[in-house]
């Protein structure tokens, strides 16, 4: 009976090792958002140069919307851009943009002029106030907001054709039914 006691440390170590090994496979950058099912925190951003209206949390009421945090400096945003253009051309869902941490107020508008502007409204976010409201750590990040202005889904990183078809678009269609 006492012999079993000797194996206890080994058993504890094994359990610990299993947990730690499982932890190795996880991406520490992939944080669960605490904002899911919470209303969008209040924020107000000025328009980007050349536009008259900025973006605030009040613009995200009344319909299901997609909020996208991007920056002209961000490679993955460039890759994501074509898909966003396609979504906006087909009028699938209004996309609201947060133009995050541009080095100056010219590069963002220039980027959108060159590649096309898929956003209904864009807020200029040089001081990260919009990004912090959404708990963003890196661009691009996208959020699905329901018609009551509640955050229902977060996607970290670029939305690929695949994620759009299999995850984001079904969620949007689902929320519209509610």
């Amino acid at each position: 009976m006492k012999k079993i006691f000797y194996f206890l440390p080994l058993v504890i170590l094994a359990i610990l090792a299993i947990y730690l090994i499982m932890g190795l496979g996880r991406n520490p950058q992939d944080l669960p958002s605490v904002l899911i099912n919470k209303p969008v925190p209040a924020f107000e951003l000025a328009p980007i140069k050349g536009q008259t209206k900025g973006l605030s949390n009040l613009d995200l009421l009344g319909q299901v919307t997609l909020v996208n945090i991007f920056g002209s400096w961000c490679e993955a945003c460039r890759l994501e851009h074509d898909l966003l253009m396609k979504i906006s051309k087909n009028n699938l869902v209004p996309i609201y943009g947060i133009d995050w941490q541009e080095p100056n107020n010219l590069v963002g508008p220039r980027w959108l002029k060159r590649l096309g502007n898929p956003y209904t409204l864009v807020g200029d976010d040089p001081k990260s106030r919009g990004a912090i409201a959404f708990g963003v750590t890196k661009a691009p990040e996208s959020f699905v907001i329901d018609k009551n202005g509640v955050i229902r889904f977060k996607h970290t990183g670029r939305i690929t054709e695949n994620t759009w078809n299999n995850t984001v678009w079904p969620i949007i269609k689902d929320l519209r039914k509610q």
């Binding site: 520490p28 944080l31 941490q101 990260s128 106030r129 750590t137």
Partner: peptide, 23 residues
């Protein structure tokens, strides 16, 4: 600092850390 996760925002030079310090 959520960009360089083992630093505090007080230590980090990341732009997001700076904006959080200002906030």
């Amino acid at each position: 600092c959520l960009v360089c996760q083992n630093q505090s925002i007080d230590d980090s030079d990341a732009p997001l850390a700076r904006d959080l310090r200002l906030l």
